[in-house]
Nucleic acid binder design. Structure first.
Lengths: 347, 347
DNA sequence: ATGCGCATTTAAAACGTTTGCAATTTCGCT
DNA sequence: AGCGAAATTGCAAACGTTTTAAATGCGCAT
């Protein structure tokens, strides 16, 4: 095996052919004699020839990479999302031989500036954008640059068309409400975050819509809001809900981490789940299965979604479709033991 | 903002300078007049100039990327490792402006072939290799290619020198033994995997060494082995341990996922943890805190390790040090509630 | 004026690939 | 044998950058 990397020139010299012919032969051009093509292919295989990415990118304008900005997270925050997402994305890209490039944002560097750098340095042919904010400057930038991208999540106002895949949180939260209502619950709590992410609205609106649809004026909804990464504030907000004189009999959390905190605090307050309180989450993170009594939640199948996003993005890069590609994935209920009938005597 | 990407040529034309001068000015060469340098820098900033990665890579031979092959995992396996690792790696790389490229292996494609492709296509200046196998063809390949890499984990036989960072599993397992021995335990179980990864030996050897060090012939160790991804077999192996007429009073698991299964099966068998059985894991995954009664384990601080690996790799790429860079990170005990004194009447 | 040294700038080659166009070879046919 | 067309191959430019070596301009001493 050669210590140095083989180039087209070397291969051509060795075969007594021109670089052009070798290049064309490897690309499978019909105009090159079949016999030559086979001879070249075999020699390339033997030499372990791998085309140089940079050279190819330079001339073709295509890098074969899909970019993503590494989401910035708190210092000791366990984020099960990223691993799942990256794995799925990799799976979606591999069929077309694309690789993923992950660019981290340094301390004090905006996610947008990293994104700009990835786009404008020609590192990637397209990018994936996750966790859409209410006013998302990344989407605005990509649009005005007309750069291929697929968003995981949606903007609230549909003022411009783009490609997206989203998990139907609205539907899930409606489903959660209906299930709990049918179990006799009338007083609900929602634990949400204060960060301006669109998904919190979509989910909350889905819940509100289901309540409205039911048309029962006796239904009540209390909302507790806290910053996502401030554990203390989160606990406080939850306890305000739990320790109200008239507390909800069912709490729906924006995502599992919040739901797990609800269950912890409920236990601390001497409330039995689900006897005194039903809790439902969203995401189905690993810990949800282990936390007693087992959290009922919705599986967002991040990995599968990411895989589809990867495939969508490759389509977008290849075909530049006019109509936006959109896909709403319905999460599936994972029924564990954290929900049950409303406690009697408290409707 | 321009719709097209600015190039050096455009910038040069606009400034009435040669491409060479502009390039040098942006690189901050002393030989370019300070006034010119400032003028160029300002114009570049205004135009939003970002150098083209491919062109730069082609001429310099440096891509500014660090590569990693996306570890192949079972279809529905939640792998908290990857997210943590990738985040840490990103953090470690960002200071030098390097990005991470993640290449997935398609179905039926070996991890080695993907690695070869990444290396030989010039996509990356160095790579990270994780989960070292007993006979690891990736390491052999990288060595003979003399390609910069840092391994997360070690080979067992030190027949060739390379750069690595490893978590000191041997020490942790020794520590676990000492702690349990001092709590009166004499009969131990070890749950391990059948895959030929070096870390299982390192940890098991650490345990054995601690036992030997103690020199107490009454100490017994039973070992249960199962394939990593076969949940059924894992449960069987664990139950053989739990249902033996003379069962261990303390079980040490190779990593948390195994330990959690031990706790589940113990509960199913009517054994109270830690009263009837002590359990200790390794990794400190998120679920370990939630699984009752709270798993005692060792925190391997993946993210921090990955960060250091990133920094090490950048050093290796930049300096090509002669002496191998090595670092053994001691994991810290996370003492929760799954271990306690040996049950009386059973020594 | 001439030449010299210095500061500053530039021309041109190189990196490895793809591709438009042109050149060469082959071959059937008269 | 000669011709033309078809099949096959090759030349050279291009992609955007870095870098080597050389050129240019300028002030100053001779």
């Amino acid at each position: 095996m050669p210590a140095r990397v083989t180039t087209l020139k070397e291969l051509a010299a060795q075969l007594g052919l021109s670089i052009t012919t070798v290049s064309r032969a490897l690309a499978g051009h019909e105009q090159i004699a079949l016999k030559t093509r086979q001879r070249v292919t075999e020699a390339a295989r033997q030499a372990g020839y791998v085309p140089n990415t940079a050279a190819r990118t330079l001339v073709s304008g295509r890098s074969g990479f899909v970019g993503m900005v590494l989401p910035i997270r708190g210092p000791n925050l366990v984020d099960s999302f990223l691993g799942e997402f990256v794995t799925g994305l990799g799976e979606g890209l591999v069929s077309h031989g694309s690789d993923l490039i992950l660019a981290a944002a340094a301390q004090g560097q905006s996610e947008l500036s990293v994104l700009r750098h990835v786009v404008e340095s020609g590192r990637a042919d397209g990018v994936v954008v996750t966790r859409i904010a209410e006013v998302d400057e990344r989407l605005a930038y990509l649009r005005q640059r007309n750069f291929p991208f697929v968003a995981h999540g949606r903007l609230l106002d549909g003022d411009f068309a783009y490609h997206w895949l989203d998990t139907d949180g609205a539907h899930a939260f409606g489903e959660a409400f209906d299930m709990l209502y049918d179990l006799g619950h009338r007083h609900f709590g929602l634990v949400t975050i204060s960060e301006p992410m669109t998904f919190r609205h979509l989910r909350q609106d889905g819940l509100a819509a289901a309540i409205a649809r039911r048309g029962d004026p006796s239904v009540r909804l209390d909302v507790a809001t806290a910053p996502r990464f401030d554990r203390g504030a989160r606990i406080q907000a939850i306890n305000r809900l739990l320790h109200a004189t008239d507390r909800p009999t069912a709490i729906v959390a924006l995502f599992d981490e919040l739901a797990l905190t609800v269950m912890e605090e409920a236990a601390r307050a001497g409330l039995a789940v689900p006897r005194d309180l039903s809790v439902i989450g969203f995401d189905n993170i690993a810990a949800s299965a282990y936390a007693p009594p087992g959290l009922t939640t919705f599986d967002a199948s991040i990995r599968q979604c990411a895989r589809e996003i990867g495939e969508m993005l490759l389509t977008v890069i290849g075909n530049r479709p006019d109509a936006p590609l959109t896909r709403l994935v319905r999460p599936t209920l994972v029924s564990r033991a954290s929900h049950g009938p409303a406690p009697i005597g408290r409707n």
